[in-house]
């Protein structure tokens, strides 16, 4: 059913990126099945509320914010509030215990920024749009996360 001006853009985004959404959101929900449900619901909300997209950021970042709100069960605001930034963790932590331990030591904002970077493959600009912070802040946050992870992981590993 045709619903609005962004139908085709949202469908295209879904077809290109729903896998990345699932991968990232599984780190919020704990498993891929519920992550898939969140993705479905998030895109449904985006379709339904597409007039809420003002076009001053990327459509994908807007959908990410909706998706996180769905994932954390928030219903109040259409925008992701800072306190709603979800906690993230690897679904199967046993696969890489050292990385898991290092990531767990990151402050929440550094942790979600680095997950968005590697699981969602978002640019600094897009991460900033999702988290509501400036691109420069994203760069600084990721830099600090890298430094912290490097310190944690290289303490007992030798990487060429």
């Amino acid at each position: 059913m045709s619903m609005g001006r962004l139908d085709s853009e949202l469908e295209d985004l879904y077809r290109r990126r729903q896998g990345a959404f699932q991968v990232m959101l599984a780190s919020v929900t704990g498993n891929v099945e519920s992550a898939r449900d969140v993705v479905q619901e998030a895109f449904a909300r985006a379709l339904q509320k597409q007039d809420g997209f003002r076009g001053d950021g990327s459509l994908e970042a807007w959908v990410w914010r909706i998706a996180f709100r769905v994932a954390v069960g928030s219903t109040g605001s259409h925008e992701l509030a800072l306190e709603e930034v979800p906690d993230v963790a690897f679904v199967d932590e046993q696969l890489d215990l050292r990385l898991t331990a290092a990531v767990q030591k990151l402050p929440p904002q550094r942790r979600i920024a680095i997950f968005l970077r590697y699981f969602a493959d978002l640019s600094y600009v897009e991460i900033g749009e999702v988290l509501g912070i400036a691109e420069g802040t994203v760069a600084a946050t990721l830099s600090k996360a890298h430094q912290q992870l490097s310190a944690e992981l290289s303490a007992d590993e030798v990487i060429a």
């Binding site: 619903m3 991968v23 891929v32 898939r36 479905q40 895109f43 449904a44 379709l47 699981f119």
Partner: peptide
Amino acid sequence: RFSALAVEPLPGDWTDVVVRA
């Protein structure tokens, strides 16, 4: 290293999205 820990996504279903909307 992150990639090795990524879950395998399930198939998508756009029709389901539209029905939910």
